[in-house]
Computed example of a mutant assay.
Amino acid sequence: MALKIGLVGAGSMAQYHIAGYRRAGAEIAAVADRCGERGRALARELGAAYFPDLTSMLASGKADAVAILAPNRFHAPMTLEALAAGVHVFCEKPPAVTAAEAVAMRDAARRSGRILMFNLNNRARADVRAIVDFLKQGKAGRVNSAQAVWMRRTGIPGFGGWFTNRELAGGGPLIDLLHMIDLALCFLGEPEPDCVLAQTFDDFISNPDFKGPWGVAQPGGVTDVENACHGFVRFRTGQVLTLRCSWAEMIRSEEVSVAFQGTKAGGMLRRTFEVDGDESTTEDLCELYWQRGAEPVNREIEFVKDESMGRVESAENFIRVLKGEDEPLNTPDDAVWLMKIIDAAYRSAAAGAPVFVERT
């Protein structure tokens, strides 16, 4: 019998989830969305039941697992509600809006005995998997340092909508574009953060000249998040990470990359855009670097470009994990470390000083 999935949210991200779940043999059995017209339309298209909210969906018993596709502020409460009801959860990024929420979600999953995963979809990309395989074989040695970059020139999403509202989103590009930070943590081996120093900037957050193609604008709405964040993380292992995240900064065009340096080899994944957000203008690079004696060796890894940036494969992985056919691409512990870094970066920027991260 096919696993039955409930979608909580019928926005644009649903298409990737649907494709991944179906490819893994699951059934989309229910759709919940507070926007009745949008939710009913998707439910009709899928032949699924419609519900106005998560609570009524859970009460119906129609879903073995739910996908949380709601704005950031609802990730933790909805996940906790679903786990308490005994269903598995696949939650969109970011895991939560605070580290404390991420810890509560992890602990609830442990208590319930249910699977909790997050759509940190870039981990599913073919180029990322190639790098992970290289690292698992020990060919890079000890990875000492990494650099995570997701920067845009004109990429502020939905002026005045939930993306630019701290209460709903938890922050700006640091929390929205966290994928490269997540990949850097993966390449570093998921070390425990010790100290974070960061600075945020909001020079352009209210300037419509820097608007991107994402999100739904609400004229006169709130714009109280950063447009850029730069920071440095030291881990208890002695490893380090630098991060650069922006929706709007004076750069040539959008860049999405993560690089790492090990004692035996280093590497880089990079996607650049000639025009911010225009997939047709992208250029992808995946390279490894090492020494053969005094001779530098650079090797380019060939891979099939994934236009969804791993979104479909990530959703498919969730179902395969539930069926016992695959290992999870991420764990609740991974999400906790990620959110602790983001939390500490915001606190460091507010305090104008380094922030030490408490152990959990």
Rank of each mutant, 00 (worst) to 15 (best):
Glu274Gln: 14
Arg129Gln: 14
Gly86His: 03
Asn72Pro: 11
Ala100Leu: 12
Ile342Cys: 09
Gln239Leu: 07
Arg252Leu: 10
Ala96Arg: 00
Ala169Asn: 07
Gln239Ile: 06
Ile341His: 11
Leu288Thr: 03
Met78Asp: 10
Lys323Val: 02
Val132Gln: 05
Lys136Thr: 09
Asn144Ile: 12
Trp150Ala: 15
Gly293Phe: 08
Val143Gln: 09
Ile5Leu: 09
Met13Phe: 12
Ile5Thr: 01
Gln199Met: 12
Asp284Gly: 12
Leu269Phe: 04
Ala315Val: 03
Leu80Thr: 03
Val143Ile: 15
Leu185Ser: 01
Lys305Cys: 11
Leu285Ala: 13
Thr282Pro: 14
Val357Thr: 09
Thr223Gln: 13
Gln291Ser: 14
Arg292Phe: 15
Arg129Asn: 05
Pro332Asp: 03
His88Gly: 04
Thr282Glu: 09
Cys35His: 15
Arg311Val: 01
Ile301Gln: 00
Val225Ala: 06
Val8Cys: 10
Glu279Thr: 13
Phe318Pro: 01
Ala353Trp: 10
Val275Lys: 15
Thr164Phe: 06
Cys245Trp: 02
Arg125Gly: 02
Pro296Met: 07
Asp284Thr: 10
Arg299Ala: 15
Ala124Leu: 04
Glu295Thr: 15
Met1Gly: 15
Asp224Thr: 08
Ala265Met: 06
Ala265Cys: 08
Ala100Cys: 05
Met57Tyr: 01
Arg40Asn: 07
Ile131Ser: 10
Pro52Leu: 01
Trp290Glu: 11
Glu327Val: 06
Asp182Arg: 03
Val355His: 10
Leu241Gln: 05
Leu135Ile: 08
Asp176Gly: 09
Ala70Leu: 10
Lys305Glu: 13
Arg292Gln: 14
Ala259Val: 00
Glu92Met: 02
Ile131Asp: 12
Thr98Pro: 01
Gly141Glu: 09
Val256Phe: 09
Gly215Asn: 07
Asn122Gln: 14
Ala48Trp: 01
Gln218Ser: 12
Phe303Thr: 02
Gly293Cys: 06
Ala146Leu: 06
Val87Gln: 01
Glu287Trp: 11
Pro219Arg: 06
Ala49Lys: 09
Ala109Phe: 00
Asp224Arg: 03
Arg244Asp: 15
Val225Met: 11
Thr281Ala: 08
Phe163Gln: 12
Val103Gln: 10
Phe260Pro: 00
